[in-house]
């Protein structure tokens, strides 16, 4: 891990069509009091950042497939290198879709099984705390967190899924308020109720729910703070 004294330095990549970068900035800068900068998608140098975030939105209008065009943005070459060197990469919603298209995470997104854009609070269960993004959580804990997407129907072929399970790469699953992963608790038809996955090296996480939108009880929930608190724990010196 890139454990350093002081706080993690965050970079939020802004693509044409991103629309959650300001919320993400608010969560990191105002709520967590951590250093953060925007990174325009034409940037090719990510030196100086410890954690790069691909925010939600509709990069390149979601043309062709979600994330399919953004994945070839100039910055994505740098994100690939950054991730390969162990840098922390968090893709939220559209950012998750971009990471899938880029091959930084296994699987692909299909249109929601119900064909509708779904924007609401729901529950996810924490499946692993063995990531820099979830280390401050409790395994099996239920988070109340919002989603807002039309293509969040996660798919992986059976071999991929088996490999992900073997390596503990499923990070969040949609569940009921009581923590059960039922078909009714699945908002989009995702395989195995999957809401978030990480790579094998555990430094890249993609998640459909928005942890930047629930950092204060006044917003309906403060459970999203746990993601940012986990990340900031990384910088408190343990590796």
């Amino acid at each position: 891990m890139t454990a350093t004294a002081g706080k993690l330095r965050f970079g939020i990549v802004v693509f044409p069509g991103s629309n959650c970068e300001a919320d993400t900035w608010h969560a990191i800068h105002d709520e967590m009091d951590a250093p953060v900068e925007y990174v325009w998608h034409e940037e090719t140098n990510l030196d100086g950042y410890d954690c790069v975030i691909l925010p939600g939105g509709f990069s390149y209008g979601d043309y062709l497939r979600t994330g399919a065009v953004a994945r070839f943005s100039p910055v994505m070459g740098a994100v690939q290198e950054f991730a390969a060197k162990g840098g922390l990469v968090l893709g939220i919603c559209n950012g998750f879709q971009i990471l899938l298209e880029a091959g930084l995470l296994p699987g692909a997104m299909l249109r929601n099984a119900g064909q509708k854009f779904v924007c609401r609070y729901l529950h996810v269960r924490v499946e692993t705390t063995d990531t820099p993004f979830t280390r401050e959580m409790t395994k099996g804990a239920v988070l109340r967190i919002p989603i807002a997407h039309g293509e969040g129907n996660y798919y992986a072929d059976p071999d991929m899924l088996a490999e992900m399970k073997e390596h503990d790469q499923i990070v969040f699953r949609y569940c009921t308020a009581e923590g059960e992963s039922t078909p009714e608790a699945n908002p989009n038809g995702s395989l195995d109720n999957i809401a978030g996955v990480c790579n094998r090296d555990r430094n890249v996480l993609g998640m459909m729910p928005h942890p930047e939108r629930c950092t204060d009880p006044i917003l309906g929930s403060a459970d999203g703070r746990l993601v940012w608190e986990s990340l900031l724990e990384v910088s408190r010196g343990d590796s």
Binding site: L64, R65, A68, V69, F72, E101, G107, A108, L110, Y155, A156, D157
Partner: peptide, 8 residues
Amino acid sequence: KLLANPII
């Protein structure tokens, strides 16, 4: 590379 996603 771009037009199709071979996973799906």
